[in-house]
């Protein structure tokens, strides 16, 4: 059974079509690079997969559960980092992560350990007792990522997780995501192509709400050439 099954998903906002009959599947353990120009519908697709927005037509399944018919079961399998990390500025990092852990059903006895585990994974262990509003943008982004990792959900949906990080933090986060391969399925949305080359095995490119490519990275970009993926991306999204 694939981790994600998207069937004919269309999303219309009044008369604007954000997604147009999108169909794709993602297998367990894959790291999928989800690409597209700004406004192509990446975030909308992610919001549909996480059950935040309903599709106008079509269906989306996560771990075999329809996101809209069995929302609780589907959501239990997902860790989600939206475009803007969903943080409460007045809470401490620890208080915030404990709150999200409780919502995700992390057992009370394991909560403290789980918070410390994700904090050390994302490098936020030193700021656990600081207020979120006092953190730099890079730390806020990493707290958002920690939240998605709580409870080790099988599927991680990350909307531009490296946004606002400096090159070193960027490399750390990508390394972390790469380390999740195998046990976790990851969808990584970004418009920074070298990041995709560094972390993903498969790539899905959408343009104007339609998938224009879904294949192994090696087939979309000639690995012998440095700019292979860029060329493919520009060619496919030119029209």
């Amino acid at each position: 059974m694939p981790m994600i099954e998207v069937q004919n998903v269309t999303k219309r906002y009044r008369d604007r079509v954000a997604l147009d009959a999108v169909t794709f599947t993602v297998e367990k353990g894959e790291i999928l690079g989800f690409l597209g120009p700004n406004g192509a519908g990446k975030s909308t697709m992610m919001k549909i997969l996480t059950g935040f927005l309903p599709p106008t037509e079509g269906s989306a399944k996560v771990a075999g559960f329809d996101v809209f018919e069995r929302p609780l079961e589907a959501k239990r399998n997902i860790g989600y980092l939206p475009e803007t990390p969903p943080l409460y500025p007045e809470m401490t990092v620890r208080g915030y992560l404990k709150f999200v852990g409780r919502l995700k059903g992390v057992p009370r006895a394991k909560l403290k350990g789980e918070v410390e585990r994700v904090a050390s994974l994302t490098g936020t262990a030193d700021v656990l007792d600081r207020l979120i509003l006092a953190l730099s943008k890079g730390f806020k982004q990493r707290v958002g990522l920690s939240q998605a990792l709580l409870g080790s959900p099988p599927l991680l949906i990350l909307d531009e997780p490296t946004e606002g990080l400096d090159p070193r933090q960027r490399a750390d986060v990508l390394q972390l995501i790469k380390g999740l391969a195998g046990q976790h399925t990851v969808i990584l949305s970004t418009h920074i192509l070298p990041e995709v080359k560094a972390t993903c095995q498969r790539v899905l490119i959408i343009h104007r709400g339609k998938p224009v490519a879904h294949d192994d990275l090696a087939k979309l970009a000639d690995p012998s050439r440095e700019t292979g993926l860029e060329e493919t991306f520009i060619r496919l999204t030119a029209a």
């Binding site: 996480t50 609780l72 959501k75 989600y80 969903p86 919502l103």
Partner: peptide, 8 residues
């Protein structure tokens, strides 16, 4: 968005 995508 966090509340609405949590299993709640």
């Amino acid at each position: 968005e966090l509340l609405m995508t949590a299993p709640v």
